[in-house]
Write a protein that binds this DNA or RNA. Structure first.
Length: 430
DNA sequence: TCTGGGGTCCTAGGACCC
DNA sequence: TCTGGGGTCCTAGGACCC
């Protein structure tokens, strides 16, 4: 009796809490007139759709669609269009996550709008009720609607969350549902967490079209194509927990700053400005993470949607790890020159830092000049800039090498005010 | 005309060693 | 002309996530 086996093994309970249409919900929180209207939020450069209200989903607009392809429905349905306002979203995300911490000791923040909660300790309680409590509390304290899916494994909790989203209650506990297989047979294989485009196609070619098919597929076959990840996924579908909670904040292995340009760049000096600015941005991240980089990559490419696609990158290793913008800029400036080729229209570029170490244990080197005074100047300048930019706003102080005109600067024409993170943008009540 | 940004993990294959 | 076996380490590339 398979269900008995599952019951005996099912000692764990994971909840996946996911904010509904998160970016749209954030916009609506500060602008209630948007409630009930179709709303989309766009990616950087106002390029693609990254969030949709239910009304927009019902119209059939898909995630990732370029905005120029949906001008017609935007007009016809009077869709409200917003640029991304990441400072607002990350602030509200933080409030949601701290609310969740009241419900269980172990909360894993999985993304800006999702968290896993380990409810194993509470498994003899009525978790449907507990989940409803979580929903109500987040709605009351933060104002963001969430859905809660509960199951014996993370993969099944993801799946339960999809079902929760479609229900009126916004909560679904798969572990008390009488027939998990019946549910799995109704889930498209491409909708499983961990199955992307490529794997979905490959599986469908082999007549594995539902989650139930995948659960029952031959292990060797799955292993041959998807490796260990595929096997774990399959076991998770069987109710055997293979993915544990990741509670420690692991240090990052790489940090990157890159952007697409609203208009293609066809000269070296604009590209240099852009790279200089990305270097500053990425170095800022390193310092915030208390890390320093030893390997630096600069890349640039033309549009993949045009003919004559061109892409190039160059990497160099530093003798001494650092997180000072000035030191890093010297290297990125050289690298960008080495990859630039005349005659190409560059549409995107970026800086990637890897070989990251904690900035407390920066390795010394034979080639270190030991110029303590220069080092001290770098450090002082950097910390002054960081402090001022944090107090006022980003880019209050920046290097002249990042340019004045900044033709490459990201477009963001419909951004809502930064209600919660910027004094000038505080909501006024009259 | 106009198509995001920032990550993670795994694996195959090559270089190299004894 | 003959052309091992086993191991490690590193990297590029491919897949995935939100």
């Amino acid at each position: 009796m398979p269900s008995t086996v599952l019951d005996r093994k099912a000692e764990k309970r994971f909840a996946l809490v996911d904010c509904n249409n998160f970016y749209v919900s954030c916009e609506r929180l500060f602008n209630p007139s948007l409630i009930g209207k179709p709303v989309v939020v766009l990616s950087n450069n106002d390029g693609c759709v990254v969030a949709r209200s239910q009304e927009v989903k019902d119209i059939g607009i898909k995630i990732g669609m370029p905005v120029f392809r949906i001008y017609e429905p935007i007009k016809r349905y009077d869709i409200q269009v917003y640029s991304s306002n990441y400072s607002l979203y990350s602030d509200l995300s933080g409030r949601v996550m701290s609310t969740l911490a009241y419900f269980a000791p172990d909360v894993e923040i999985y993304s800006i709008d999702e968290a896993f909660i380990d409810l194993s300790e509470f498994r003899y309680r009525d978790l449907t009720e507990y989940g409803s409590e979580i929903r109500q509390r987040v709605k009351q304290w933060v104002g963001i609607p969430v859905s809660v899916g509960i199951a014996p494994t993370k993969t099944l909790a993801k799946l339960a969350n999809r079902i929760a989203k479609q229900s009126n209650s916004g909560i679904f506990d798969l572990s008390v549902y009488p027939s998990i297989d019946k549910i799995l047979s109704q889930v498209d294989v491409g909708d499983i967490w961990g199955i992307g485009f490529k794997y979905a196609d490959w599986l469908r070619d082999r007549r594995i079209t539902t989650a139930l098919d995948l659960k029952e597929a031959h292990e060797g076959l799955i292993r041959s194509k998807m490796g260990i990840i595929g096997l774990k996924l399959q076991r998770e579908l069987k109710g055997e927990s293979c993915l544990s909670m990741e509670l420690v904040d692991n240090p990052k292995k790489g940090t990157c700053a890159s952007r697409s340009f609203p208009q293609a760049i066809n000269n070296l000096s604009d590209l240099q400005e852009a790279i200089s600015s990305f270097t500053y941005r990425a170095a800022e991240k390193l310092r915030r993470q208390k890390q320093a980089a030893s390997v630096i990559t600069v890349f640039a490419r033309t549009s993949p949607f045009r003919d004559n696609f061109y892409s190039n990158s160059a990497t160099t290793e530093l003798a001494l790890s650092t997180n000072y913008t000035i030191d890093l800029s010297r290297t990125t400036a050289q690298l960008v020159e080495s990859i630039y080729r005349k005659g190409h229209n560059f549409k995107k570029a970026g800086v990637i830092f890897t070989g990251l170490v904690s900035d407390r244990q920066i390795q010394g080197s034979l080639f270190d000049t030991n110029d303590d005074e220069a080092k001290m100047r770098s450090r002082n300048l950097t910390s002054v800039m960081d402090t001022i930019n944090e107090m006022y706003s980003r880019d209050t102080l920046r290097f002249a090498s990042t340019g004045v005109i900044q033709v490459w600067k990201t477009k963001s024409e419909q951004r809502s005010p930064r209600y919660t993170t910027c004094w000038q943008d505080l909501l006024e009540v009259s």
